[in-house]
Structure formats: structure tokens, C-alpha cells
Amino acid sequence: MHTWQMQAAKARFSDLVQRARQEGPQEITVHGRPVAVVLSREMFDRLSGGDLSLVDFMQRSPLHDLEDIELERDRSPGREIEL
């Protein structure tokens, strides 16, 4: 991943976007600290699921056709309750 300082990212924004499309995510830093990542729209859609509904997502799961999945609920309290 290429790293851009904020000033360079602002000055060369079209280059930053082009590199995100061609090379992948581009990191932006302020005072040496990472603050943002620029992605191509294609990568964003792929990572976010695009237009898939929750039902579509679940049906595409590799676990969709399995019948022997046993899910056990953790019955421990989430926090201690004082009475």
C-alpha cells in the first residue's frame, strides 16, 4: 500500500485516485499517523458486499447447505449484576 502525506494527497488527488484504481488501497497520513485509506469503487463494492441483501449474503455462505451445524448459546451473564 502506498502512503501519502495529506498535503501530497491534496495536491495530487487525481494521481491518488488513479493509483487506487490501478494499484489498490492508498493510505493517507497526517503527522505520520494513518488517518484514511482511499479505495477504488470496485474494491469498496467487493468489500462491502455491494448490492447484496442479507438474505443473498447468507445464501451464498459456504455454510448455507450444511444441516449439522450446532450452535450453542453462551448462557453466562454479560456482566455481573449487583442486587
Rank of each mutant, 00 (worst) to 15 (best):
L47I: 08
L16F: 05
D65K: 13
L54N: 06
H2E: 15
R60G: 10
R41M: 10
G50R: 00
R19W: 04
D74E: 07
I28D: 00
G24L: 02
E72H: 14
E80H: 14
G24C: 03
R46M: 09
L83F: 15
G32I: 05
L66D: 12
E42V: 09
I81K: 13
R79G: 12
Q7P: 00
E70D: 14
R33H: 07
E67D: 14
Q7G: 06
S76G: 07
R75I: 12
Q59Y: 08
I69M: 08
L66T: 07
S40D: 02
D65G: 11
V55S: 11
L52G: 00
R19A: 09
I28M: 03
D51F: 07
M6T: 05
Q7F: 07
D74L: 07
M6V: 09
L47C: 07
M1P: 09
P62D: 04
P25A: 13
R41T: 11
G24N: 02
G49Q: 02
L16V: 10
R46N: 08
E27A: 12
R75N: 11
V37L: 01
L52R: 12
E23F: 04
D74R: 08
F44H: 12
H31R: 14
D68I: 05
L39Q: 02
G32M: 03
I28C: 03
S14A: 15
L47S: 04
D45R: 08
K10R: 14
Q18K: 14
M43V: 13
